[in-house]
């Protein structure tokens, strides 16, 4: 019985991990290509979720809601890139942190003003409700399983794009030497806008997909943003492979830590103490993981020299 629960928790961890990857991939690409640390990435996640909830409420279609989340987040991304973010590429990280912190304040309060403080709800599509039977008698949520599938598919598509397409080649070239590819005739500012919009769209998609599990509310983006930071620090900033490995590590550590640590402490502590010690340690576990990785590799697992 207990190991079935363990498998389910591991699947939950994987599902959390691939969703974190959607956030972290955009952050790490934006940092890798433009050298920008974007705190407002969490706001783009929130915008995706709100757009999806609004469109789903109006049309009842989950597919349209997902398209709306991609479009709204990408549009918001292009808008802030063209007006504000573009001025920050040459600034130091402190200015970038503050300007994007200011953007969070504007986006969060703006959304609160437009939609109110009460959470919205986004229903899972009918076809993905209920559970699905996996081998060995494991019952698992069909929607969460679909999330794992979508996340892995997006990851595969992203790797293919970066490895094989012309845009991907330009992105990789931009990471290595932006002056050189500008000299070779690539319109670097269009490339920057494109990368920013791509990252924003991925964040918006993650927001919409997660929004159907949790509630859609102002401030939903920042906890995920901070976890995505942990992910890219573990994986190595700028590395998309690192983001995938880091995201799954963080997802599994967080979920399994919360499940296993209280049980582990219960072996030698009283149940009440074990629960409280275990759960406080579990909430810190991913940060302990991060500190451990940094002790061994200060530039992250896949970080270059």
């Amino acid at each position: 019985m207990s190991w079935i629960l363990l498998v389910e928790q591991a699947l939950n961890g994987l599902q959390f991990g691939v969703m974190l990857f959607l956030m972290a991939a955009g952050l790490t690409l934006i940092f890798g290509v433009m050298g920008l640390i974007n705190l407002a990435h969490g706001s783009l996640y929130m915008i995706g979720a709100f757009a999806a909830a609004a469109v789903a409420a109006a049309t009842g279609s989950f597919v349209l809601a997902l398209i709306a989340s991609l479009a709204a987040a990408a549009l918001a991304g292009v808008l802030i890139e063209a007006t504000i973010i573009r001025r920050l590429y040459d600034r130091d990280h402190l200015d970038q942190v503050l300007a994007t912190f200011a953007l969070i304040l504007i986006f969060s309060e703006g959304t609160r003003w437009a939609f109110g403080s009460f959470p919205l709800f986004l229903d899972r599509p009918e076809a993905l409700s209920g559970t699905v039977s996996l081998p060995f008698g494991i019952e698992y949520s069909r929607y969460r399983l679909a999330l794992i599938g979508v996340g892995l598919a997006v990851a595969a598509g992203l790797f293919w794009m970066i490895a094989k397409t012309r845009v991907g080649i330009r992105i990789r070239a931009g990471e290595n030497d932006r002056e050189m590819i500008a000299a070779l005739g690539v319109d670097i500012s269009r490339l920057y806008t494109l990368v920013f919009a791509l990252g924003a769209a991925l964040a918006g998609l993650a927001g919409a997909l997660i929004g159907a599990i949790q509630s859609v509310q102002v401030g939903m983006g920042e906890p995920v943003l901070i976890l995505a930071f942990v992910v890219i620090v573990i994986g190595g900033i700028g590395s998309v492979q690192g983001a995938l490995v880091g995201a799954i590590l963080v997802g599994l550590t967080d979920t399994l830590g919360g499940f296993l640590l209280p049980k582990a402490f219960a072996l030698f502590l009283s149940p009440a103490t074990a629960t409280s010690v275990g759960s406080s340690l579990a909430s810190m576990s991913i940060y302990i993981l991060m500190a451990g990785v940094l002790l061994v590799r200060p530039k992250g697992l896949f970080g270059g020299a």
Partner: peptide
């Protein structure tokens, strides 16, 4: 301080969150 630049920003943020959740 084993790291610098943008890593330092994110790591201090993460440690802050660790205390918050604790």
């Amino acid at each position: 301080l084993r790291t610098s630049g943008v890593y330092f920003i994110m790591i201090t943020l993460a440690f802050g969150q660790m205390f918050f959740y604790f």
